[in-house]
Amino acid sequence: MNLMYVPAIAMVAIFMIYPLVQGVGLAFTNWDGYSPTKAFVGFDNFARLFNDKTFLTALINTLIYGVGCTVLQQIIGLALAVALDGAGRSKAFARALIYLPVLVSPVVMSMMYYFLFQYDRGALNDILVALGFDRIAWLSTGPGTVTIVVLINTLQFVGISMVIYLAGLQGIGQEINEAAEVDGARGLRLFRSITLPLLRPAIISSMIINLIGGLKLYDVVQVLTGGGPGYSSHSVSTLIARSYFGQQAAGYASAMGVALFVLIAVVSIFLVTRMDRTGKDI
């Protein structure tokens, strides 16, 4: 029976693990990313990570992107699922429209949002000007850009959370009614004490999908400001690309890649085990 996962393992081994091992090897060299020659530099690149303020900024931003998007996506996704649970043409239509952004590539979606936040010809500033206010340079500060990036990524993928929660709600619809009859619970109390605990498994899968997406975030940052102003909105992924290609420091970029991999692994394992534990407490 175990033979059935051999094809999957083979593909993963050939197309991911083998290149990954080679890629990790680069982290110990000073390779420039294209020349035939490279020198072994030991742990220099990893040591450099600890003194690199830019990397620290990107690391903090990556955590904000990952955790911020995940939390917002769960709240908004769940609220949408509750609001749109049930039959009816208008609800189905609304569900499809809210899911729409999931269907376009993040590059394209970010570009569309760029039209919104642009300074001179941006759609938001057009409204401000029409109302008699001054234009706002939305993407001119680090914190402002980071916030907008979180919002855009949240809105693009909130549809996935919504659908997972809709499915969860449908699964527990019967149980709720029965429990409510016994309890006489209703409204918010019913939601908090019965619906939410029953949704726990849905919350976990939705969070895993969103969290990994948020921690690997690349396109939105790249399209909005390319990591600017300065380095203030870089995620680790965009910084890796910048070092790898732009600064011709492929070895150092590989070291950052290893660090990102470890970060994502630690955060997701931490969250999954924590969710499991709080689940058992209830």
Binding site: M16, I17, Y18, Q22, I212, S237, I240, L260, A265
Partner: peptide, 21 residues
């Protein structure tokens, strides 16, 4: 272990494997 290994591949940054691939 196999499950974890496969799930772990979700976390590989694409640029880490691009050139060898």
């Amino acid at each position: 272990f196999v499950s974890l290994l496969i799930l772990g591949m979700l976390m590989v940054p694409p640029l880490s494997i691009l050139v060898p691939l």
